[in-house]
Nucleic acid binder design. Sequence first.
DNA 1: AACTGAACAGAATTATATTCGTTATGAAAC
DNA 2: GTTTCATAACGAATATAATTCTGTTCAGTT
Lengths: 152, 152
Amino acid sequence: MKLDQIDNRLLELLQEDSKKTTKEYALKLGLSTTAIYERIKRLERGGAIRSYVALVDKAIVNRNFTVFCHVKLVQHVKDNIAQFEAQVMRLQEVVECHHLSGDYDYLLKIHVQDMDAYRNFMVNKLTTMNHIGSTQSSFTIKEVKHSTAIPL
Amino acid sequence: MKLDQIDNRLLELLQEDSKKTTKEYALKLGLSTTAIYERIKRLERGGAIRSYVALVDKAIVNRNFTVFCHVKLVQHVKDNIAQFEAQVMRLQEVVECHHLSGDYDYLLKIHVQDMDAYRNFMVNKLTTMNHIGSTQSSFTIKEVKHSTAIPL
DNA sequence: AACTGAACAGAATTATATTCGTTATGAAAC
DNA sequence: GTTTCATAACGAATATAATTCTGTTCAGTT
């Protein structure tokens, strides 16, 4: 999919706020509403825009405790990896899971209510999983920056 | 702000897809469109819904290289911390910055085009910042899971 | 029982998204 | 140089959804 400068600027705007009217985007980008409308549809069809979502305030819904957990597997055989990843997918507390280069295998990002809830998560969910060698958790003291916008 | 069960379910739906019509949410939750409309407005006013955004596919816009970079400062004086955080805020490649407990001070999440772009970012931006003691970068081999939805 | 405020429903209105027919623009073919 | 084709743009018309308005229900209170 080929994107020109206007597409990129449009994506930046949509990543900031997707609830503006096409008229507003059109105004900012100096095109008609129809032109913008068709560009947006093209970006959706082409997969550049994956979805539209509401971003929720962690503090207000009581999930203000963020943990990064490095996980090492006991053995890196194909089946272990597949099984671990499948299990992680099912844990809703885990909002991100990255297979990483370096000393540890995986980095998980976890949102829970508080330290108690995290202990609970560790004991009842994470450490009951198969093939896990070791884990190491770090807690977010302060979320300095957090954006869902891919830099363009 | 007090949230009941319907609010939570509504937030879950909005975190999945914010572009459905109020009629659709109303249908799923067994209320009228007006009732849902007013609940949504209440969630927006109360700050539970921070914003609505489009999620963009990293691969299609050529930012498919994700790096986690641990940063240690030379000294933990107030001014250093403030200055470092202010500088990080200005780096658009850095999509997240967490002040963490543990050995390292900060964890940055960075999206760039490829390894070359990352080297460039390191040399020209990150390591030119003041007060940085050491950094350690890990690269995402595979993004196993990624959700923007806070678990409710 | 009467009152109050919050939450809800259905209808009416307003605003926006979407479609349609047409017109420029630019690149390739003749 | 002009013909052809494809792409992107535009303005007007239409369809659809958001928003507002009015009245109702219900739980809690007096």
